[in-house]
Each structure stands twice: as structure tokens, then as C-alpha cells.
């Protein structure tokens, strides 16, 4: 992974797969011998609802260029409705990523049922390609080099302070 030139850039991607739908979909992709991009490393959780946003931030901090969360389709959650909570967190987290200077498209939420091995493989390929287009994340370097992002940080601090003022009143 020493080479990070555009041609040979191979993104590091972590995927959190829910046990019931998406992990089974990955099993199905395997048993059907569907070939897909190998850059995605999988972590199994019981439900996409278990994916703590701090895991995603930590993944980026550890050098991941993209993070995928895969869960059951809306209405199909093994735990009734927990994928909706994932969806909420996901949308919120994307906004937050933007604020801290990470392209929001580096985080992807995918619905894949147990029978959707081909669809999951396709979603992975597509995501890998998109992250490849975005290039390496190198988060810490971006912070120092990019003045706009410093401004973004200041904006967050200001927003926070004004929120506190409202509370004090």
C-alpha cells in the first residue's frame, strides 16, 4: 500500500454487514462465485443498528478511505425497525463528516437482503470505484493544508457557542 498514485490507488474500505441479510448476501455472493472488488474488508454485526458512529470515525482515523454499512431492506429488519435507526444515524453522520472535512460519499449505506448476493457485489464494486475516484483520504494532512476546512471547524465552534447561549437564556 505504499503506492498511492492515481492509477494504482487501491482504496481501503471497511464494510459492516448485518448478520441476517447482508452477511448472508455476502455468503451467497461467495457460493455463487460472484467476483467483486477485494478491497472491501468485512465485519459482521448482528444488526446494522449496532454500528456505532465512533467505529466509522475510527475507521477513517485508522486510514480507511471508505466505510460501507449494509443492512436489511426497510421493513425487513430482523429486529423490526433497527435499520431505520441506522438510516437516521447515517444521514446525520454524513452531515458531520462534511463538517469535519471528509467527503460524505466516503460513507455508504446499502440495503441487501439475504438473496441479493449479486446486488451486494455490485454495490461494493460501485462504491470501490467511487472511492477510487475520490482518491486517498489522508485526513490529517487535509486538515493542515486546507484552510477552508479550518474555517469549517470554526463555524462548528461558533454554532456550538450560539447553541449554548440559547440554552442559557
Amino acid at each position: 500500500m505504499s503506492e498511492t498514485s492515481e492509477k494504482s490507488f487501491s482504496p481501503r474500505i471497511v464494510a459492516f454487514l448485518c448478520n441476517w441479510c447482508s452477511y448472508s448476501a455476502s455468503d451467497l455472493a461467495g457460493t455463487s462465485r460472484i467476483k467483486y472488488a477485494p478491497q472491501v474488508r468485512m465485519i459482521r454485526v448482528m444488526c446494522s443498528g449496532r454500528v456505532d458512529p465512533t467505529f466509522i470515525l475510527k475507521a477513517f482515523a485508522l486510514g480507511a478511505d471508505g466505510v460501507m454499512i449494509a443492512g436489511c431492506h426497510p421493513g425487513d429488519c430482523h429486529y423490526i425497525e433497527q435499520n431505520y435507526k441506522t438510516l437516521r444515524r447515517y444521514l446525520f453522520l454524513r452531515r458531520m463528516l462534511r463538517q469535519v472535512g471528509i467527503e460524505e460519499n466516503r460513507l455508504r449505506l446499502v440495503w441487501a437482503s439475504a438473496s441479493e448476493g449479486p446486488q451486494l457485489a455490485q454495490a461494493i464494486n460501485q462504491f470501490v470505484e467511487e472511492v477510487r475516484q475520490l482518491g486517498p483520504l489522508s485526513w490529517s494532512q487535509n486538515w493542515q493544508e486546507n484552510g477552508q476546512r479550518q474555517q469549517a471547524l470554526q463555524a462548528i465552534v461558533q454554532e456550538h457557542e450560539s447553541a449554548l447561549e440559547v440554552l442559557e437564556k
Partner: peptide, 8 residues
């Protein structure tokens, strides 16, 4: 049932 959403 062990989904872990509360944990997150």
C-alpha cells in the same frame, strides 16, 4: 434479542 442498537 441482541441487536445491539442500544449499545451503539
Amino acid at each position: 434479542k441482541g441487536c445491539g442498537t442500544c449499545v451503539a
